[in-house]
């Protein structure tokens, strides 16, 4: 296994120059994610309009995989309807964990993160942002501001 299967150029680029980095204030939804394995943390702020995720920002500390994943996720979900975001969440989860998964949706750049499948210790790094987003949307519907953990 070449380490470049994990650290592809697009991932290194998003790690160096994260897109949508920062906080939205005010935000319609917010969530904090923690990876207790490494102590990394991720904060997501969202704006929602007409059942769509109109804007998203993230910040926090993390490894290249978690930063790139959050950055690429922020690009992938911006402007999507909430059901589309939910479908993408399920697809990406399968991409990270199921060998030879054939995506039912076009995943574009996100496919570059599929390399984590071969590095089980790093799947949580890639999925933290998606779990945090999922929790933010679910709990927004319930009027909460949650904290999620990948453990």
């Amino acid at each position: 296994m070449d380490i470049r299967e994990l650290y592809r150029d697009v991932i290194l680029d998003h790690n160096r120059s994260p897109r949508n980095f920062g906080r939205l204030e005010p935000a319609d939804a917010e969530a904090l994610g923690h990876n207790p394995l490494c102590g990394d943390s991720l904060s997501l702020t969202l704006r929602l309009a007409n059942d769509r995720l109109s804007e998203i920002r993230f910040n926090g500390q993390g490894c290249a995989i978690s930063v790139a994943s959050a950055s690429m996720m922020s690009e992938a979900v911006s402007g999507k309807s909430l059901p589309e975001v939910e479908a993408l969440y399920r697809e990406v989860h399968a991409l990270f964990t199921e060998p030879a998964h054939v995506p039912a949706l076009p995943l574009g750049k996100l496919m570059a993160l599929g390399g984590v499948r071969e590095f089980p210790a790093r799947v949580k790094c890639a999925s933290l942002c998606w779990h945090t987003l999922h929790a933010a949307l679910q709990r927004h519907a319930a009027g909460e501001r949650p904290t999620v953990s990948t453990e």
Partner: peptide, 14 residues
């Protein structure tokens, strides 16, 4: 600088 310890650990493991 510029590299998270987890990434160091994964690359060294390889």
């Amino acid at each position: 600088r510029g590299v998270h310890p987890h990434d160091i650990g994964t690359i060294l493991d390889q």
